[in-house]
C-alpha cells in the first residue's frame, strides 16, 4: 500500500511526466476506486473506496502540477521545501521579486491597468516556464549538486506562483 505517487500511476520517478498518459491512468484508477463504483458495497468498503479515491486525487494533483511535482520529488529525496528554515535563495532573485511586487502595486495606478496587468502576467508566465525547464535539467542530472540547485529553483517557482495568483486576484478585482 505504501507506494509513492509515481508508482501508484505506474510512471517512472521523474520530473518529466507525460500529461496525457497521466490523465488517462488517473481515469482508469478512479474507474476502479471511486465511491460511485461502490454504492452497493458495505459501509466499510465504501469508506475504503473513499480513502483510496482521495489518495488517487491527491496524487494526480501533485503529479499534474510542475511546482507540486518538484516539491514532491524533493521530498522523496528527503528535502523539505516547506520548511521555514529553508534559505537556499539567491539574493539576486529576491531583489527581482521585490521589484516585481512593486511593479504589481504600480500597475493599479496605471492609465490602463488591465492591459498592464496582462503584460505583467505574460512576463511572469514566461519566467515560470523558464524555471520549469531548468528544473527539468537538474532533476534529470540527479546529482547531489543538481538537486540542491533544483531546491533553489523550486523555491523561486513557489514565489512566482504566488505572484501569479496575486496578479489574477487583482485582475478579478478590476473587472
Amino acid at each position: 500500500m505504501d507506494r509513492n505517487y509515481f508508482e501508484l500511476f505506474a510512471l517512472p520517478v521523474s520530473f518529466e511526466v507525460d500529461i496525457s498518459s497521466l490523465s488517462e491512468r488517473y481515469q482508469d484508477l478512479q474507474r476502479s476506486a471511486h465511491p460511485d463504483k461502490f454504492t452497493n458495497a458495505t459501509d466499510r468498503d465504501r469508506r475504503l473506496s473513499m480513502q483510496q479515491a482521495s489518495m488517487i486525487n491527491e496524487a494526480y494533483q501533485v503529479l499534474k502540477d510542475p511546482l507540486k511535482r518538484a516539491q514532491y520529488l524533493l521530498n522523496l529525496n528527503n528535502v523539505d521545501t516547506h520548511s521555514e528554515s529553508n534559505t537556499v535563495m539567491d539574493t539576486a532573485f529576491l531583489m527581482q521579486q521585490m521589484e516585481l511586487r512593486e511593479a504589481l502595486d504600480d500597475i493599479m495606478d496605471a492609465s490602463d491597468p488591465l492591459a498592464s496587468l496582462e503584460s505583467f502576467s505574460a512576463d511572469i508566465e514566461s519566467q515560470i516556464r523558464n524555471l520549469i525547464s531548468q528544473c527539468q535539467t537538474c532533476f534529470s542530472d540527479n546529482t547531489e549538486d543538481s538537486l540542491k540547485k533544483a531546491e533553489g529553483l523550486t523555491l523561486q517557482l513557489q514565489f512566482l506562483y504566488r505572484l501569479r495568483e496575486e496578479a489574477e486576484d487583482r485582475e478579478e478585482a478590476l473587472l
Binding site: 500500500m1 505506474a10 510512471l11 491512468r25 482508469d28 476502479s32 476506486a33 466499510r44 483510496q52
Partner: peptide, 24 residues
C-alpha cells in the same frame, strides 16, 4: 479488514495492468 485492503490494492494494480513502467 486486511482482506478488503488487499483486494483494493489488487484492483488498483489491475486498473493499470495494461501499462508497465518499461513503456517509458
Amino acid at each position: 479488514s486486511d482482506f478488503a485492503a488487499k483486494r483494493m490494492d489488487a484492483s488498483i494494480n489491475k486498473a493499470l495492468s495494461g501499462h508497465t513502467l518499461d513503456e517509458f
